[in-house]
Computed example of a mutant assay.
Amino acid sequence: MASPSVSLIVRPRGKPIKGLPETTTVGPTDSAAELYKKIAASSKFSVHRIRITKGSDGSAIPNSSSVTIQQTGLRNKSTVDVKDLGPQIAWETVFIVEYLGPLIFHPLLYFLRPIIYNTSSPPSELQTLSLILISLHFIKREYETVFVHRFSLATMPARNIFKNCAHYWLAAGLNIAYWIYSPNAPTAGPSNPLITYAGVALFVIGELGNLSTHYTLRNLRRPGSTDRGIPMGLGFSLVTCPNYMFETMAWLGICMINWSLSTAIFLVLAVGQMAAWARKKEMKYRKEFGDKYKRKRFYILPGIY
């Protein structure tokens, strides 16, 4: 005998949603994702643009194919609230656009040095090396975005892309590029081979270590799933987020090569943000995995934070 259907009362949360049905019907064994699809189709929205919560207590109903309507606690005549999250943009697109900024500004200012700085002197070895390393860093990031990362969230509000891009387009792109390719920059002078080689070594170790940890994190999550296991492997016994640790190493190597205050400022800003993310990740791991997870004392930098 088939299970009786569940009739839900639907109401908008916040501003009205054109086309939102007053009621909808689902089966108790249907997935919560099916509820999202039905309401999104009626509203002519993407499923990622809406958030559905229970009218009784405001708790979120996940857009998940592994959670049934019955498991959400919804029953016949229950009320659900639907919120319009506004225009969305895919996280993959956001990352691609973010990292594009430095890949535009650095070659642009490097090759247009004679015009921008009114100089006839050719770029120095350190300026050329800086261009190569920074470009390689962001090319690697673009590669990871397309071929490595699996995103737990499909989209973000489209308006946030301007804030996200500012960090990379301005701080890592225009700001660093303008100062390090100047004929008066420290990079315009002779290099100290020992410091330069050490910087390159740090950069290479940092980039390869970062790539390795990203593959580790990728393999923890099955395609199309948000479930994941406990991360183990290179660096994970030292800190919560070794990907951030290796990222810091790579940028420290770049700092040792160009000795630019603008690069140092970007590194400080980046480490501060990554440290906050890493702490949240540690708290999330502790809550999600409980006693199975070996708690970390340091989140991003061994012995420091």
Rank of each mutant, 00 (worst) to 15 (best):
Y178E: 02
P122F: 13
P123S: 13
H106K: 03
I176D: 00
P123Y: 09
M156F: 00
P123H: 07
W179V: 02
F147G: 05
R159T: 08
C165A: 14
L174K: 00
S182T: 01
L126F: 11
V146S: 00
S121F: 10
L136P: 03
I132V: 15
F105H: 02
R113F: 13
L194S: 13
I115M: 11
P157H: 05
N118M: 13
V146C: 01
S124K: 06
P157V: 05
L170F: 15
F111L: 12
F151R: 00
R113Y: 11
T187F: 06
I132A: 14
P186H: 09
S191Q: 08
I115F: 15
Y110P: 01
L133W: 07
I139G: 03
I176Q: 03
C165S: 13
A154T: 09
Q127V: 08
V148P: 08
P107E: 09
E125P: 04
F111S: 10
L108K: 00
L129W: 06
A154S: 09
A185C: 02
L170N: 03
I104Q: 04
F138L: 06
F138Q: 02
A172F: 12
A177L: 03
L131S: 06
L108F: 14
L136D: 06
V148F: 05
A166N: 05
F111E: 09
Y117P: 04
L126D: 02
S152L: 13
S130H: 10
I161M: 08
Y178Q: 04
L108A: 13
N160E: 12
E144P: 03
N160Q: 14
A177R: 01
Y143M: 06
L194K: 15
N164M: 06
S135Q: 07
Y178W: 15
A188Y: 07
Y110G: 00
L136R: 01
N164K: 07
L170H: 01
Y143N: 03
I195M: 12
H167D: 04
N184Q: 09
T187A: 15
A166Q: 03
I104A: 08
S121P: 00
V148S: 02
N164S: 07
L109C: 04
R150C: 05
I134F: 09
S120E: 15
I116N: 04
S135C: 15
S130W: 13
S152Q: 10
S182A: 11
L170S: 01
I115E: 12
Y168Q: 08
S152I: 12
F147D: 05
V146W: 10
S152V: 12
L136A: 14
Y143W: 13
L109E: 06
L108Y: 12
A185S: 13
L136F: 11
L131N: 05
L126M: 12
F105I: 07
L153K: 12
L133D: 07
S124L: 10
N118G: 12
H106S: 04
L174P: 06
I195Q: 13
I116T: 14
N118E: 14
N160C: 09
Y178V: 07
H167S: 04
I161W: 01
P183I: 06
H149Y: 10
A171T: 09
F105C: 08
Y197L: 14
I116F: 15
L153Y: 06
I176C: 02
Y117S: 02
A154G: 01
V148M: 06
T196D: 01
F138S: 01
T155C: 13
I104W: 04
Y197A: 11
N184Y: 10
L170Q: 00
G173C: 03
W179S: 00
L112C: 11
P114M: 10
L133G: 06
L174E: 00
L131E: 10
